[in-house]
């Protein structure tokens, strides 16, 4: 039989992250919907993949507004086959909503990393206002657009800030998802169900090393006196 079989498609699906994501969503579209664990795994793999793609072209995104970057991310999720939407109403406005069959849901809040308190606002929006707290809506993400260098230090700082706000957080590194990514585990205020949020740092820091530096100003005579 010279035709492509499901076995061959599965093998193709193992050749790259993109192929793996596509094979999963293709199966779901064709009548084999996922369980929540598989849904979250594939969504987060896709989000991490997109974050890596964004980070490869930092000059394209440096200085862009949050909404602009997030809109493009949602578009990319749709290309992967997800039912993804931007800025829909789920208990309030939510930056990213990914659903399957109206049954499985993954939410994300997107923020430029300007300060930890700004991120915390986003986290609270995600956790208390948007997350349904139901088992099939208990997973979500923070998309953290880092236009400053040293994403690793930014994430450590962010974790420290989160612990200062609530000492019950438990963190789990997720380097397999994305460099410096981690997940935070907490209990939903609404329903008491465990909530897990994966924090995706997207490095859009851009300062080309070969750009000529500006000459230093001479010290004024006034300053010396």
């Amino acid at each position: 039989m010279g035709e492509v079989t499901i076995e061959q498609l599965e093998c193709y699906g193992a050749t790259s992250t993109v192929a793996r994501i596509q094979w999963a969503t293709m199966r779901w579209h064709s009548g084999a919907p996922p369980c929540y664990a598989e849904f979250v795994d594939v969504v987060e793999t896709a989000v991490a993949q997109i974050c890596n793609e964004l980070a490869r072209d930092p000059q394209m995104h440096y200085g862009q507004k949050e909404d602009h970057i997030t809109y493009g991310l949602v578009g990319r999720l749709k290309v992967f086959g997800f039912h993804a939407a931007f800025d829909t109403t789920v208990g309030g406005h939510c930056d990213v909503v990914v659903k399957w069959n109206d049954d499985l849901i993954w939410l994300a809040e997107a923020k430029h990393y300007t300060s930890n308190s700004w991120l915390w606002k986003g986290y609270q929006q995600l956790s208390s206002r948007y997350s349904t707290g139901e088992p099939r809506g208990s997973r979500g993400g923070m998309l953290i657009y880092c236009s400053k260098p040293r994403t690793d230090l930014l994430m450590e700082s962010w974790k420290g800030y989160m612990l200062d706000q609530c000492s019950d957080f438990v963190f789990e590194p997720k380097p397999d998802r994305l460099a410096n990514a981690f997940s935070s585990h907490a209990v939903s205020n609404r329903t008491g169900v465990a909530e897990v949020v994966t924090h995706f740092p997207v490095s859009i820091y851009f300062e080309p090393l070969d750009r000529p530096k500006k000459p230093r100003k001479k010290a004024s005579k006034k300053a010396i006196r």
Partner: peptide
């Protein structure tokens, strides 16, 4: 060619994109 990532990505997109879906996979 089957297996060409460009071809595969596009077939899959046309079978899956929520806004542009024009194909349905059957077995």
């Amino acid at each position: 060619k089957v297996g060409d990532p460009v071809f595969m990505n596009c077939v899959n997109l046309l079978a899956m994109h929520p806004d542009f879906r024009v194909l349905e996979m059957h077995l």
